[in-house]
Amino acid sequence: MSDPASFAETPGVNEAPNFPLRVVDGLTLPPEYRKALRPGEEWKDATGFPRQLPRYFYEVPSWDSAMKIELASHFLLWEFIQVDVREAPPLRTFPRYVPCAITLLAVCLERFRDAVGTLVHISANGGYRSPSHRFSKNATPHAWGTAANIYRIGDTYLDNRGAIERFSLIARQTLPGIWTRPYGAPTGFAEDHLHLDLGYVLSVPRDVKS
């Protein structure tokens, strides 16, 4: 028979996780954010299949915090939220909102980084971007926070077939279920980066009650 004392709680072990970002329900955000983020709405992918957009987001209060918050040992939050002038104006200033599934992507990229043994660089517009971003034509996992465009690994620029296919193979071997965009120029292909994504994953943190 087990000693009941062995089930005694280790101090602090069941306290709220030490993650500094507040979770917000996108449906409660001001209208300009709801219009740009379209929380919980359906959005069709390139084949016409409807996908449900994320509803819950982490609120990023400032660039300074994004520069400090580690999503994984070698990935800081800012690397996932670099967007240019093509992003909807309300989403280019702080506070910024990023789908909660971004943490899953970061864990995958950390594992990928271990496999390649060097720095993995996410391009601008290549992490989370909203459905209102000018690059977002159809439902893209980038708007779920579950896709990354990697333009450089170590000193290797992924701008040619050899490099893209080599690292794509490593990604698929390392990350079960990951999807990588094939090399090529037409729509649906990539020739100047490695696109990898986890699909249309929705993450609802446990403290969300609604």
């Binding site: 240019d84 002038v85 093509r86 391009s123 601008a124 517009n125 701008d159 120029a185 020739e191 100047d192």
Partner: peptide, 22 residues
């Protein structure tokens, strides 16, 4: 529409006016 400090993604891929070929 732009600010002098607006940021632009530096990407070396453009589409030709001829048939949108990259």
């Amino acid at each position: 529409d732009l600010l002098p400090h607006s940021r632009v993604h530096v990407r070396n891929r453009f589409l030709s006016v001829v048939e949108n070929i990259p």
